[in-house]
Design a protein around this nucleic acid. Structure first.
Length: 291
DNA sequence: GTCCAGGGCTCGC
DNA sequence: GCGAGCCATGGA
């Protein structure tokens, strides 16, 4: 892979296992929006970035080599060999063989722990477009203005302090619905009790899970998503309706409970369970498997 | 009106 | 530690 800077952009030439549609639409993130030219613009780490694909080149627009080295290299998990991961998954069974071919360019982003905590509380019993809307509203209302890009204004995700200053009613006004009380309670807990969510990455998967489950509005599924997308716990397997469908279609009985599906997958996919989950989720959702 | 979404909480065993 | 009900909002 060749990396160089030109015209306020960083170009990645010949990067393996990288497809922007797969990455941004596999359900792991909520703040990346597709532009008219098929590129994606989003906010992460308090910066606005646009990502564009042209042939075998990936253009990271509105950034420079310094930010690439400090932020984006890690954010896009470019230090991990996804070819190797996919090959191991392919050897497991025919369904993963298909799913990894289908979503060949997926990478699990290393996103902000706190942002994942609140985002996936909002996700509970909700739809993806509604989740995106609520997060946008919260950011616009309580986050810092970062700047403009391509004629649009962008805001950072609010910090724990910024969000805890909001009332339950103000949070609800951002279209969070009945989850308003969960968000308020969690924001207060993190801001006031100094619950150090940024330290949970250092804990092992089980300890991390126990800490996250203490928050109001965080159950098994939400907890697994935060662990996987915010804390690099790859030996987790979030089971939502889509994953339940694809698992029942290919692996287990119709009447198996969610906790048992989770246990089954952890046992079967082991250290790679989180990666398997992403490929299966994207495969199931894009193809409408089980509906 | 009915159904459903990247579920969580509470209770009873 | 489980399973079963109950709870909840907004869009299609």
């Amino acid at each position: 892979m060749k990396i160089y800077e030109e015209n306020n952009s960083v170009v990645l030439e010949g990067v393996e296992d990288f497809n922007i549609k797969h990455i941004f639409e596999c359900g792991q993130c909520f703040r990346w929006k597709k532009e008219e030219n098929e590129s994606y613009t989003g906010v992460a780490k308090g910066k606005i970035l646009n990502v564009e694909e042209k042939g075998d080149k990936i253009y990271l627009n509105n950034t420079n080599l310094e930010d690439f080295n400090n932020i984006w290299h890690d954010y896009f998990d470019l230090g991990t060999n996804y070819t190797e991961i996919k090959n191991k998954l392919k050897e497991m069974d025919e369904y993963l063989d298909k799913a990894t071919d289908f979503g060949w360019g997926i990478r699990i982003l290393k996103q902000d722990q706190w942002e994942m905590l609140i985002s996936f509380i909002i996700s509970s019993n909700n739809r993806i477009p509604m989740i995106q809307k609520a997060i946008d509203n919260l950011s616009k209302k309580f986050g810092k203005f970062i700047g403009e890009y391509n004629g649009k204004e962008y805001y950072a995700f609010p910090t724990p302090q910024e969000l805890s200053r909001a009332s339950k009613e103000e949070i609800r006004a951002c279209q969070t619905g009945f989850r308003d009380k969960y968000i308020k309670s969690t924001a207060d807990a993190v801001a006031n009790n100094n619950d150090n969510v940024y330290g949970y990455s250092m804990l092992d998967t089980e300890q991390c899970r126990k800490e996250l489950l203490k928050f109001n509005g965080v159950g098994p599924k939400v907890c697994d998503c935060i662990s996987l997308f915010g804390m690099q716990k790859y030996d987790t397997f979030p089971v939502d309706v889509w994953v339940k469908r694809v698992m029942q279609e290919f692996y287990v009985d119709e009447d198996m409970s969610l906790p048992k599906i989770r246990a089954y997958a952890l046992d079967k996919f082991g250290e790679l369970a989180g990666f398997a989950q992403q490929y299966l989720f994207y495969y199931a959702r894009e193809l409408g498997i089980g509906r």
